[in-house]
Design a protein around this nucleic acid. Sequence first.
DNA 1: AATGCAGACAACCGCACTCCT
DNA 2: AAGGAGTGCGGTTGTCTGCAT
Length: 450
Amino acid sequence: MGRAPCCEKDNVKRGPWTPEEDAKLLACIAQNGTGSWRTLPKKAGLQRCGKSCRLRWTNYLRPDLKHGRFSDHEEQLIVRLHAALGSRWSLIAAQLPGRTDNDVKNYWNTQLKKKLCEMGIDPITHKPISQLLADLAGSISLPKGPGHIADATLGCFKNDMLNLLMRQRPDQWQSEKTSRPAFQLERTHQQWGNATNNIAGQEHPKGKDKLYSKPMQMDPIMQKMSSDLSKAMHCKLTQPINPKSYMREHVTRPSDFVQIEDQLFVNTSCNSGEEGIAKSEMGILFDHLNAVGTSCSKPTQWTADAPPEGVVNIPSIVSELQVALTQSQHHMSFSFSQQNQYDVPSGPNHSHSVSQPPDQLDHVVQYPQHQLADQSSANYYQIGHDLQHSTHDAILEATADLAWSPSGSNSTCSSSTVGAQCDLSAAVEAVLSSDMNILWDFSELGSIMS
DNA sequence: AATGCAGACAACCGCACTCCT
DNA sequence: AAGGAGTGCGGTTGTCTGCAT
């Protein structure tokens, strides 16, 4: 049985208190004391809920309250108490005469969290962020195996894996790598634009500096990958997020974006959909970025050129994703077809089509023929992300005996890739478990991307 | 001057707990 | 023992304001 409401909500005023209301409340409490909050509004002649009166008194009108900024001593005390107690605001406030739990909570959320981050301290654990990331990186072991595979194959495959995850064309990285500072905003826009608006065939309505405002469609492939990886990595899924606030939270400035991509080369924010989606499988890392907050300056030990040893590195990140993909319960399938068989019913922002998946596969994306034709000379088949032609062949070649699962008539891969079907997760699994010497060392990607 | 954005903080919401009848 | 009232609490939302464009 639910609780009875404390008041008739229709008949009470809400929102900020006026000086007249404050005066009435003070006069009433002076006369009758506190308590009996339910009956107090009537006695005081206020059109307020009793609970609202109580909060106004305890958080603002009480004569023993301090107003104004927190002293350095109070600040340090809050930090120490938070480290010991966590977000037990009432307990913390009890140690700060004249401060309420609401005061302390607001001060923490708006000021202290930011300050700690700028000092390179994780406000949740109160440990150095570099140490946390080092711990994380150290916990990930890279897959190894005997034998060898052609460098070109591996290189292409690595690039494609990364491009797939980042929805970024390698030629864009290449062309911009020497002029990052001047192109930060432009590049940021280009990345998001390419990942979203251009795919949708739409110009961003607000111009280059307003790209964060536009909700983005999430590529079905990315959506599925995100889901699969999350399951595989046993990361908890957080509640659906609003793309705009998520972007604002994580990427408020181009420099933030650059910091993130410099260190991680993985972009989870692009996994935002209009409906909001679960936070991605990279939540382990992005929880830290989340904790870092919106105004984090780049810690001094993080530089674009030389990440400190063991802090966070590309091999770990990519390996983590590969392992997760391998462990995934689902198959990712990428299909190339001459036929644009099915229209996507969910709206105009999808420029590609989805076919009915074959029985043994969960998801197939059909690439419309006109796009194949447009891009074939450039070796790219662009649809949300790029899969480099040479890699496709290389994967097929490397895993021919291991992982390619025929699916109906689309069981072979020709040089034109038309009609070919690649079960990517199976391919990754096969490569990982093969006798080939696959050095899962993606360190050179750093030089490619930076 | 108008507009949009983000920070700061006041206020609200809903749940849980205790006390009292 | 059951249920209502009062209160505490933490998370979230709303509003105001200053600043940038």
